[in-house]
Nucleic acid binder design. Structure first.
Lengths: 304, 304
DNA sequence: TAAGGAATGAAAGATATATTTCATATAGTC
DNA sequence: GACTATATGAAATATATCTTTCATTCCTTA
């Protein structure tokens, strides 16, 4: 990168922005690549960004963003945005445009897929409805205060359970993923008074989930169940049941949106714990070193 | 119009912008109407405009544009632009009563949450856009035909990787989750010519993902990377990169929507494999007995 | 058509955003 | 490993953008 400012350096004439970005992706400096990479991945968001907001996200300085824009041929970030408008005028920024675009291409190919997307969006809405249910705060309080949290998921839901457990472990101690290695659920059932259990279940693949819930409840451990809308036994064996839609026009059910619920739940617990958890995250940050300096990681987020 | 500034006057919270504009078009003052009219006609250009630029076009003063925005419920023109991003609410299938209900209760409680939901919905759209990218069919073909599929995810993404692997295992043979137990990636790198690698990564928490990708590519194994939009090294070490949004107004990033991409990918592979996989699933169904008779499980779905 | 209230624009003030400078860090070269 | 050139970030500066104040205009209504 040159030091002479003010003069756009890059490809002098109007190449499309995408081309410029992918050139920078190959030839640029480290920071350049980072910026170019983010920009090309989030083209649709660019109009809403500022040099500073991008800088923060990719972890470089505001100045560098400005310099980068000059290095690929614009005079400034603002200038880049201006060109964005005309340069690829048909690129959709507005969600409604993006949806139209998808529907258009669906007409050619598979409308099936677009219908699936609509269902999946509806599922997201459902998930956020869960967060407004009267039992939600109760679950959150329990997950924040209990001594032990056991998280269970079998078959295809094991991944979801693990996802939840892994993240929750950042937020608090005493979170464990229920393991079947021992052949029974001793770890859960013997874990003392102040424990609770969160089960992810769907498709009735696994009888285990029901058995576990029953036994836990018999032992006096509160049970929260995240399942699909077809589960008929949930309310009998769980203190709270959250139903997440799973049918999105795909060849079989998808429990993907349970992951969204996971994060929502974790976020609520984080809020509940308040500053306690911040200390914890700072300690983690030191531990891992590599956390620092990136927005979007716990420390940076908590700090703000 | 009131003279009290600072307090947004209009419909208190999250009605779609179009609705607000058309209300203003009926009820507003002369200047309001002019602005509303221009804005609704040029929604797609708004991100590039400033209060001043609109003022000039419409023939009012800068101040009036600001006041107008406040009168329809935003705190400023900039605030209006912010809401434009990810504003999906005027899509008929989203105008479900449930969504309206949520938005209403958002007025009472946390608009924050509803805003997060909108962002998450936008992420779903992004995911489905991935499925229309030119590299998508290539990845699908590879995942359908390769001898071995290695799936990797570290730290918080391990759960996602597991989720994908577990489901993919129903669809085809030779799917394995990369394990770090051995301390290296021998299992992947020594797995022969016809292998491929799918990595879930985010937040730069894990250097491992990059190392793995590099080594795999050096060995001639095709690498597909699913990551967040902030990954700056993806394009260097992966044959295909899919960026999934991760920031939903929560205290840290959420990679939940990667799970949605997982299912989409699995579904595509299923389609690619066609009837082969149906046989496989039937065999599974017999094996597990308990599958049968339930809507939403593989057999029932495939049958229909 | 005069009076009062609301709406508006001009300009000053406040804030946000971008650029430049300069000191430091980094990468490449011998 | 020292030298050079480039790249980078922090802080200062400049610029753009938005908000507020206040005087004026416009509208309504008696």
């Amino acid at each position: 990168m040159l030091l002479i400012h003010l003069i756009p350096k890059g490809p002098p004439l109007s190449l499309p922005i995408k081309t410029r970005l992918s050139n920078a992706l190959k030839e640029g400096t480290k920071a350049d690549k980072a910026i170019a990479s983010y920009m090309s991945g989030a083209l649709a968001d660019l109009p809403f960004e500022t040099a500073a907001s991008i800088a923060k996200k990719v972890g470089v300085s505001e100045a560098t963003v400005g310099r980068f824009c000059r290095s690929i041929g614009y005079t400034s970030f603002k200038n880049l945005k201006d060109h964005l408008k005309g340069d690829i005028a048909d690129y959709p920024w507005l969600m409604s445009d993006r949806l139209k675009e998808l529907q258009k291409s669906a007409a050619a190919g598979d409308a099936h897929l677009t219908r699936g997307m609509e269902l999946e969006i509806a599922a997201v809405v459902s998930v956020y409805e869960c967060a407004r249910m009267p039992e939600w705060p109760r679950v959150v309080k329990r997950l924040a205060s209990a001594n032990n949290i056991h998280v269970a998921g079998f078959q295809t839901e094991r991944g979801i359970a693990q996802y939840f457990a892994n993240q929750m472990q950042y937020v608090r101690d005493g979170v464990s993923l229920v393991d079947l290695a021992g052949g029974n659920f001793a770890e859960v059932l013997a874990s003392g008074k102040d424990s609770c259990l969160l089960i992810f279940e769907a498709r009735r693949y696994s009888r285990l989930a029901k058995v576990l819930a029953q036994e836990a409840q018999a032992t006096g451990i509160p049970v929260t169940l995240v399942t699909d809308p077809f589960c008929d036994w949930g309310h009998d064996v769980a203190d709270e049941v959250f139903a997440v839609p799973t049918q999105f026009n795909q060849f079989w059910d998808s429990t993907a949106q349970m992951a969204s619920l996971c994060n929502l739940l974790i976020n609520s617990v984080f809020m509940e714990l308040g500053s306690d958890v911040e200390d914890r995250l700072s300690r983690f940050a030191e531990l891992y070193g590599r956390f620092t300096g990136h927005v979007g990681d716990p420390v940076a987020q908590v700090a703000k």
